[in-house]
Amino acid sequence: MIELKNINKTFNVGKTKVEALKNINLNVSEGEIFGVIGFSGAGKSTLLRMINLLEKPTSGEVNVKGKNLLTLNERELRNVRKKIGIIFQQFNLLASRNVFDNVAEILRMNHVPKKEIGQKVEELLLLVGLEDKANQYPANLSGGQKQRVGIARALAMDPEILLCDEATSALDPQTTDSILELLLDINKKLGLTIVLITHEMDVIKKTCDRVAVMENGEVIEQGTVIDVFSNPLEATTKSFLRNLYDDTITEDMLVKLRESGHSYILRLAFRGESALDPVLNVISSRYSVITNIVHGSITYLKGTPLGILLVHISGDEANLKQAISYLKDAVYHVDVSLELDERHKEVLAQ
């Protein structure tokens, strides 16, 4: 559906060059919700704006539905854009028009007959739950309601893709959830492909199928949400995830590790139904290792549970090896090599 190939973008600010995007390669499939997460200034907005060419790449290729957008003329590009909706953190509604006209204006620009416009807008306002607000002006709406108008407007031209630039960042947690649910709903009902950017893992976890993590203009990690959440590789990804579940190793664990001879700290990720399997009981009885849960949490990824356990296991070396290999088969992901920082090593060395 969307393919970004070797995208680079350099901004010239006075004499200095800002490399906002470096060699980006991304594919978004039809019907999925693709998330991009990164800290402020990572290049997320710039990346999103590549997809409808609001920002032109310095080099690289942007393909949407098999069309290379960079080869299109102004009119062809406008026609492609009509099928790509976009919503913003700041809503960007017309202050001088009421809710109805905010949604209707883009239809009028495209010469849709008046009667059809009336029907379409009514339908859209019903979809976003604002059927009773058609005559209100944006100034009288709450943030969540404004974003609903933004969504209705973005859907007016029956787009196949919806781009969301921090669509919930200006909203409180409850409102955020209701907007995310609306996005999930239209993704399902209309089969819309959604690309959303955010700086909150919580948003990714509730809505996305796949995720890309950005840092300093680069995509440093990408994959299915479940893979990235169960086995994050990059420090930035881990720090984003720490807001959802804190799996930092405490000194307490390290002391245990030091005291109990042969032992490991394992990070186990369970998904779906297996989150309920009693694997720890199995290994302790079958391989006579001692297990000790030092941290446990369950996160729901688009409704599917992902369990994260930090387990300290000790026993004799051969048994430990067997236990770990059993775990590797039984659970979604096992991480034996939790990295230790200097502070941890100091504790261990005591």
Partner: peptide, 28 residues
């Protein structure tokens, strides 16, 4: 706000439409 202009550019409005129907209208 330029964000409003961006929104309509993103939706495929022409520059002429943006000037007459968005900018001039919003600033009237």
């Amino acid at each position: 706000d330029y964000g409003i202009i961006e929104a309509y550019r993103g939706m495929g409005a022409s520059r002429g439409q943006i000037v007459t129907r968005i900018i001039l209208r919003e600033a009237r």
